[in-house]
Design a protein around this nucleic acid. Sequence first.
DNA 1: TGCTTATATCGTTACATTGCGATATAGTAA
DNA 2: TTACTATATCGCAATGTAACGATATAAGCA
Lengths: 101, 101
Amino acid sequence: MASTKKIKLTDLKSLEQAAECLRTLAHPHRLRIVQMLLQSEYTVGELAEACEIAPHMASEHLRKMQHCGFLDSEKDGQRRYYHVVEPHLANILSCIEARFE
Amino acid sequence: MASTKKIKLTDLKSLEQAAECLRTLAHPHRLRIVQMLLQSEYTVGELAEACEIAPHMASEHLRKMQHCGFLDSEKDGQRRYYHVVEPHLANILSCIEARFE
DNA sequence: TGCTTATATCGTTACATTGCGATATAGTAA
DNA sequence: TTACTATATCGCAATGTAACGATATAAGCA
């Protein structure tokens, strides 16, 4: 314990942002949605079915993740396709899968 | 849209566990604590001071992270030193730092 | 036009989390 | 013993989040 322990800390403002994104990710259905969208694009209905939830619930999860910059979407007729835009998401999901499989 | 889209999904039970760990991590003070503990071990008081919070708040954050398997601790007289035991934490924090700095 | 499907939003209720003062426990030292 | 320090726990008030039924919008089709 005689060491100096001088280390560089991320400022709390940035950590607050990071925490907000992690909170957005920290939901089993949202994790599954991200996992799927990392491999292809999907509609709200397809994602809802994969998560076994009502479409309007999937829609809300997608809205949250779009709001914090993870996803974007484009319309195709009646349907809306979502896809991943945050480049670090794949890496983070790999870490999570490495621990929980 | 004509593709088969057959992908392997993590079961919801595991995703629930993963989400719980992410929720534990998703707090600015806890992120700072983990960031520090990845570089050295520290006492409750030292971590509290670095986060600018009361010691009993740091103690509670540490208890939560110990409970979900991120940290462990050992006593040295009056003080208690915490350290990281979850091997994936360093990798996850790197992902986070890569995005938020 | 009216009917159906796909997606999004609103309003409410239930539940979880946060922060914090007060209190408790354990070790140190006089 | 008493006093002090470090850490941990309790109980509560405030806030945040999740789930969900009801409703709304918008596109396709008869």
